[in-house]
Design a protein around this nucleic acid. Structure first.
Length: 530
RNA sequence: GGGCUCGUAGCUCAGUCAGGCAGAGCGUCUGGCUUUUAACCAGACGGCCUAGGGUUCAAAUCCCUACGAGCCCGCCA
């Protein structure tokens, strides 16, 4: 099936047209921490953008931060002092940590930082600046003049009748600073001003250049026209009949005389079994947390591999490992189909840092080394991996360490048990004989290297070796008739040390433990009969 | 109540627009790698394409209905 196209290329095919400049737009309101759910919007837009560029279309990509939207309520992560700011534009509210220019910058900056990591580089606009620069003045004038027509469109499509005093423009009160408490009482097209009355008692006049903003359902189509947007992804919340895309499309065409952009409707990202990701329910994985755990390419891949209209079930625990694995496999596979290769291409982010060490394997190495970077490098080297790119290995180790700390399920972790695990009761005679004999030999030897441990275990099945002889005599049989399957012996090691049937590369693992502990534990396990 | 989107292997999903033998990865099982594990390689198992009806020579694909999942319809992304 080599003729399957990636959805982004299908979109690019559909929108591309001779000579017209394409503008992919995206936007998010920076009213709180921006999570992976929101990330879908920008990644979707970026992929559409890249697909258009790859088709040779003249295309730009912009991101508009809705910094002029009012604060809706005091979110759980805000303190009560923010009650006084509810209703004010985000860009006029103080920063929660005091280190940013204002409230919206506080959330925007880390987000823009994450975009950089993901290789997403749109031209960034801030709504408050656009309004202040006058980018919306024409639209504001038309909207005010055609207020009634817009009201009819809204009524007809959404079924809601706007109130008598409704206006497409919301002035910002120059006394209380709020934008959702004012009522328009008049306007002057030549002076480019709007008169209002505020529920705080104030009545005044504001400029169309930043003195207020269009209400969302009008703001959106106004933006399409003002900036020339031709493609825009948006969440399915806008997609239902009578929703804001529907009304926006009509307003754009009938009021502003502009064809609405090509819509890309995307579904939500569901978090594990907990349902949709949403800041209000607290079901959230922030982008910065995710970037601590996985390379940016994988994050992009997560979003890119699924068509926008399907929801993505995202689980940062074990399934995340599978995802990373799948990505790495595709990345280095020589059997990748053109479709696979296209996905890899579209997943490409900034500063590609690639090692040939699988993420999953690193979880073992990391735990054996107890997170110690030098030991990790040592193990990696010993295992025969390419260690020339130390920085990438460290990055991977950093991701893995965070994953283990933040999301790893218990069964992906292992730790040396403080006491003899009760599962030692299941050990058979051969395993017991092996553990005793192994301990005996260890007692008489010096510290062993990982490889020596490894070889020592395997020597058990070879006639004439010390271990083989000890096991045979311990079991009271002739060495000739002794049948040893090393697999069983490894199991015995894991059970007595970890309480699990399997574990990391045994030799290297043992060498990371205290020799005395091994001897003591093996003897306990061998004689444990509850 | 009205609307939007989705339902394909145990799991995650391609394939649906343009009807033409039911696909991939993961997991599982089996075997291989005579240094064998949570590494690697090969093979196998695995499906009433949610259900029912319709159109058609031919339907996972198009149409209708039902069921299931998620979301929107509070001008609020």
């Amino acid at each position: 099936m080599s003729d399957i196209k990636h959805w982004a290329d299908v979109i690019a095919d559909e929108v591309s047209s001779q000579g017209r400049k394409q503008l992919v737009a995206t936007g998010i309101t920076p009213s709180g921490h921006i999570h992976i759910g929101n990330m879908r919007e920008v990644v979707t837009a970026d992929v559409a953008y890249r697909a258009l560029i790859d088709k040779g279309e003249d295309t730009d990509f912009i991101y508009i931060a809705d910094t002029y939207d009012p604060l809706r309520k005091v979110y759980p992560f805000l303190d009560e002092s923010y009650a006084q700011h509810v209703g004010k534009p985000l860009s006029d509210i103080p920063c929660p940590c005091g280190e940013h220019k204002n409230y919206s910058e506080h959330f925007l900056e880390p987000f823009l930082d994450a975009l950089e990591h993901l290789g997403i580089r749109p031209k960034v606009y801030r709504a408050d600046e656009l309004y202040k620069q006058g980018a919306y003045v024409e639209a504001i004038k038309q909207a005010l003049v055609k207020r009634d027509e817009i009201a009819i469109i809204l009524q007809k499509l959404s079924g809601k009748t706007p109130a008598d005093n409704w206006s497409p423009f919301n002035p910002i009160c120059d006394d209380c600073g709020k934008i959702n408490t004012t009522v328009v009482s008049g306007f002057d097209l030549d002076a480019e001003t709007v008169n209002y009355e505020c529920s705080c008692g104030r009545s005044g006049t504001v400029s169309m250049n930043g003195g207020g903003k269009l209400t969302w359902r009008v703001d959106w189509p106004a933006r399409w026209k003002a900036l020339g947007v031709t493609v825009e992804p948006y969440g399915k919340d806008h997609a239902s009949r009578g929703g804001s895309y529907d009304t926006g499309q009509a307003i754009s065409k009938e009021i502003f005389g502009y064809e609405a952009p090509y819509p890309i409707v995307y579904e939500w990202i569901m978090l594990g079994k907990q349902g949709a990701m949403s800041s209000s329910t607290g079901v959230v994985v922030s982008i910065s947390d995710m970037l601590k755990v996985v390379p940016p390419e994988v994050l992009r891949y997560l979003i890119i591999r699924t068509k926008p209209e399907k929801h993505i079930r995202f689980d940062p625990a074990l399934p995340l490992l599978t995802l990373v694995d799948e990505f790495e496999r595709l990345h280095s596979s020589d059997k990748a189909t053109p479709y696979d290769r296209r996905m890899i291409e579209l997943s490409h982010a900034a500063g590609l840092c690639h090692t040939d060490i699988p993420f999953k394997h690193m979880t073992t190495i990391y735990q054996v080394a107890a997170g110690d970077l030098e030991r990790i490098l040592e193990i990696v080297h010993r295992a025969g991996y390419d260690t020339s790119n130390e920085k990438c290995i460290c990055e991977l180790a950093y991701n893995v360490g965070n994953w283990l700390k933040m999301y790893a399920p218990e069964n992906a972790k292992f730790s040396v048990q403080e006491d003899l695990p009760v599962s030692a009761a299941t050990l058979n005679d051969l395993q017991r004989a092996f553990l005793t004999s192994f301990a005996d030999i260890l007692e008489r030897s010096n510290e062993l290297s990982g490889e020596q441990y490894h070889n020592l275990v395997y020597s058990s099945k070879e006639d004439g070796t010390e271990l083989n002889g000890l096991i045979a005599s311990s079991m009271g049989v002739e060495p000739d008739s002794l049948e040893v399957n090393p697999k069983e012996l490894f199991k015995a090691i894991y059970i007595s040390v970890l309480g699990q049937a399997s574990g990391p590369k045994a030799g290297w693992f043992l060498s990371s433990l205290e020799k005395d502990l091994i001897i003591k534990r093996f003897r306990e396990a061998a004689s444990y009969r509850p």
